[in-house]
Nucleic acid binder design. Structure first.
Length: 468
RNA sequence: GUCCCCAUCGUCUAGAGGCCUAGGACACCAGCCUUUCACGUUGGCAGCACGGGUUCGAAUCCCGUUGGGGACGCCA
């Protein structure tokens, strides 16, 4: 049997990070088994389902590198088929018409709650003669659910989960306006699309009982289910806007690499022995449902940062330049020239091991393009007084007469001077760093000197000397 | 409120009754490396929620308590 999985988000305007992990698991499982990964947009709520909202979803998935097979399917477009199935159920006596008004149902629920009961439809139209139907009321169609026994979900993550059928009521399948409800649409679509494995958030676990009843009523074979525990915020509460970034594209903006996100999301709720760094190729080889944990996990930025730093170090230089370019241009408010791009490319290796995100990379590289005189930060300024100025004067002279402008030879010049004058190298390097980068933290300073070039270096040193 | 699920270091996890003196990773602390900060490397801190069982033996099985999460719509 060929594996067919799906990701079925409703368009909320962005790809929720929990949804992203669900999509990743489905994608991985399909790729692992040489199956298909389908995408279905649950767009039956017309108000929310704008084109922008759908595009945001697709963008998020594309960024994460989760490619789906075939065209994305619109659930809304399938509403006639959903209605058709409900009418089949009506014909075979598995469903019935309910003429209750929303007000009547609300009153009923209110009464039940007052008695401390679980609010449930009491089945008042289940066996009632349709001839008693009030005139002018369009009926909703409900499932004639079993009233005895129990419904059991054999879940690949949660195990065997059972509920008494008395806990479930006769759910609405088709609204009085003829549109299908979510529970029904999902089942029909999953069946028609040939989905073999439904991997989704465990907020759907209790929905599964009702969906199973629909499968049974139609005589369809249900797919395998795997309900993945949810992702919580650092404080253990359900992940929400309050926790900051909930959308995948926000992570892109914060400078995370898609491969780092994939690795992080994979390890959040799934494990394979002691493996931590799991590139996607390896993940496809290893991914299984057995490795999914059963308890909810908390989102941890520190670990994401660590992973992102790792993947930045691994990343190809040209790619990093391309990704950082727009961030720099936004900061500078102008495009980078060819020369400046080359400068960035040469400086990149120095930044790679010291940044966790592309944003940090862009921030760190800004000094390269700053207009003279640069503005040193507080700590750097402190290094550029008294002794610092003397150091710069001396180094300026040494550099000015240097015949070979390379990091190695310039470093040798400074080292020789340090030794001759009995000073520690750091004593000389720090004022230099402050003068050239405006900071006390930077890539190796002689690399910076080489990359900046003779004239810019000497000019910045002079600026710092002259500064009050 | 009713029903369902869950419970190992601060966080993510390994653990399928004896391989557990509970392992790894992140974070944190210290040493080394070093021109800064990182990277790298060495070491350290830190956990089986609690209470009962079952068993020769329990982090692992059972029950309860507590705590957390989810579901209860003519939303998805």
């Amino acid at each position: 049997m060929t594996v067919v999985t799906r990701f079925a988000p409703s368009p909320t305007g962005y790809l929720h990070i929990g949804g992203a992990r669900t999509a990743l698991f489905n994608w991985l499982f399909a790729r692992r088994h040489g199956g298909k990964f389908l995408l279905r947009i649950e767009d039956t709520d017309r108000a929310r389902s704008t084109q922008e909202a759908v595009d945001a979803l697709l963008d998020g998935l594309s960024w994460l590198g989760l490619d789906w097979d075939g065209e994305a399917i619109s659930q809304f477009a399938r509403k006639d088929r959903h209605a058709e199935v409900v009418h089949q159920m009506l014909e075979r006596g598995a469903a019935y018409r309910c003429y209750c008004t929303p007000q009547e149902l609300e009153a009923m629920r209110e009464e039940q709650r007052a008695k401390g009961l679980q609010p449930r439809y009491d089945g008042r139209w289940r066996d009632r003669d349709p001839a008693e139907a009030p005139a002018g009321v369009a009926p909703a169609i409900r499932l004639k659910a079993p009233q005895q026994g129990e419904t059991v979900v054999h879940d690949r993550v949660q195990g065997e989960v059972r509920v008494q059928n008395t806990q479930l009521d006769d759910m609405i399948l088709l609204r009085s306006d003829g549109t299908p409800t979510y529970l029904l649409a999902v089942v029909v679509d999953d069946h028609d699309m040939g989905i073999t494995h439904v991997i989704r958030g465990d907020d759907h676990l209790t929905n599964t009982f009702r969906q199973l009843q629909i499968y049974h009523a139609m005589g369809w074979t249900p797919p395998e289910f795997a309900h993945v525990p949810m992702i919580l915020g650092a404080d253990g509460a359900k992940l929400s806007k309050r926790h900051g970034a909930t959308g995948a594209e926000q992570y892109r903006e914060m400078g995370y690499l898609p491969e780092a996100m994939r690795n992080y999301l994979l390890r959040l709720g799934w494990g394979h022995g002691d493996a931590e760094i799991i590139p996607t190729e390896q993940a496809i080889e290893w991914f299984d449902l057995e490795g999914i944990g059963r308890s909810p996990s908390r989102f941890d930025f520190a670990k994401l940062d660590n992973l992102n730093g790792h993947y930045i170090r691994q990343a190809d230089d040209d790619r990093l330049v391309a990704l950082t370019l727009p961030l720099l241009e936004k900061r500078l408010g102008r495009p980078l020239s060819e020369d400046e791009r080359a400068l960035l490319a040469r400086a990149l290796p120095g930044f790679k091991p010291r940044v966790k995100t592309l944003v940090e990379l862009a921030d760190g590289a800004m000094f390269l393009f700053a207009k003279r005189p640069i503005t040193p930060d507080e700590k750097a300024t402190a290094l550029l007084t008294g002794d610092g100025k003397i150091v710069l004067r001396t180094l300026s002279d040494l550099f000015a007469s240097a015949k070979d402008w390379t990091a190695a030879s310039l470093e040798q010049v400074v080292r020789d001077h340090a030794e001759a004058s009995g000073q520690k190298l750091g004593k000389l390097a720090q004022p230099l760093r402050a003068a050239l980068t405006g900071s006390t933290v930077s890539p190796p300073i002689f690399d910076v000197v080489e990359i900046l070039g003779r004239s810019e270096t000497l000019a910045r040193m002079e600026d710092a000397e002259k500064a009050p």
